[in-house]
Simulated scan of single mutants.
Amino acid sequence: MTNDTRYAVVDVETTGLHPERDRVLSVAVVQVDRHGTVSDSWSTLVDPGCDPGPVHIHGLTPQRLAGAPRHGEIAPQFDDLLDGLLPDLRLGTVATHWGVLLVRAHDALEDATALAGVFRHSLAAADADGVPLPLVACEQATPWIRARPPRYEGGWLNPGRLDVGGNLVQGMRIAVTGATGLPARRSTAAATTPVWT
């Protein structure tokens, strides 16, 4: 690792957690050297062209996003800020960087063995620089994308959409959104358990 090594720290706020359907609302890039000294920073709001999603989390209302550039308008500047700073972080690339042998990628034992070698080198580099690796216990780790809750498939045909002012009809499907007092799996199970009266 050379003394002129630079990094880009990136944060992105989105309309949700599903990369296939959710869109970017804001993006920020902070460039730092290997000691963490900030050399440059840039951020912008982005007009997603759709509902901004959970405003209570990110605070980005349609009013705040009005007039912001679209993703295509900011992409070239974003790419320029990352040019030469964010190498491919796939296991094979990182293993090659540290000189760790990886013969059969996507073989579970081979990948885990290579990752252990990468981890060993990372620990040594962090120790040499006098900094701890940002490690967390498994129970503290948060998945990037939460697993989709199970769906309840009842024995009833869906009667169609709910009419405005109408009542729920047996067989209608409902979606529970927003914060709940129960974990997602428990609240989904409670909402989809049929109740016979």
Rank of each mutant, 00 (worst) to 15 (best):
G178F: 00
D11T: 07
T44W: 08
E13H: 12
G181Y: 08
A112P: 03
H58V: 03
W42L: 05
T2Y: 07
H35P: 04
Q31P: 03
P150L: 10
T177I: 14
V29K: 13
L182G: 00
E73I: 00
P62S: 12
G178L: 07
R104G: 01
L101T: 13
E110K: 00
G117K: 08
P87Q: 09
P52W: 05
A114W: 10
D107A: 14
A108D: 10
G36N: 06
V164H: 05
R120H: 15
R90W: 03
E20I: 01
A124F: 02
L82W: 04
V131G: 02
R64Y: 03
E110A: 15
L135N: 09
A189E: 11
P19N: 02
L162A: 12
L82N: 02
G16Q: 09
P87F: 09
P143K: 04
A75T: 15
S39I: 03
P134G: 05
L89M: 11
T113N: 14
G160Q: 04
A128T: 15
I57E: 09
P54R: 08
D163K: 09
D107L: 11
G165P: 03
P19W: 07
A8W: 10
L17Q: 07
P52N: 07
L168S: 06
P132E: 05
A105K: 11
F119A: 12
W144S: 02
R120W: 05
A137Y: 08
R185T: 12
W98Q: 03
Y152E: 04
Q31T: 14
T2Q: 14
L109W: 07
S187A: 13
A179N: 00
T177A: 13
L115V: 06
G59C: 11
D79M: 05
V32F: 10
T180N: 11
L25I: 00
H71V: 08
T197S: 02
W98D: 10
A68Y: 09
T15I: 08
A189L: 12
W98L: 02
G99C: 12
L60V: 05
G171I: 02
M1G: 14
D47I: 03
V169H: 02
R21W: 06
V164L: 09
P159R: 00
P69V: 10
H106M: 04
G59E: 10
T2N: 13
L109D: 13
L65C: 13
W144M: 08
P194M: 11
V29I: 15
V30E: 06
R6K: 09
L101Y: 04
V38R: 15
R6F: 01
P52V: 08
A190F: 11
A108P: 13
G92F: 10
T5I: 06
A28Y: 00
L135W: 08
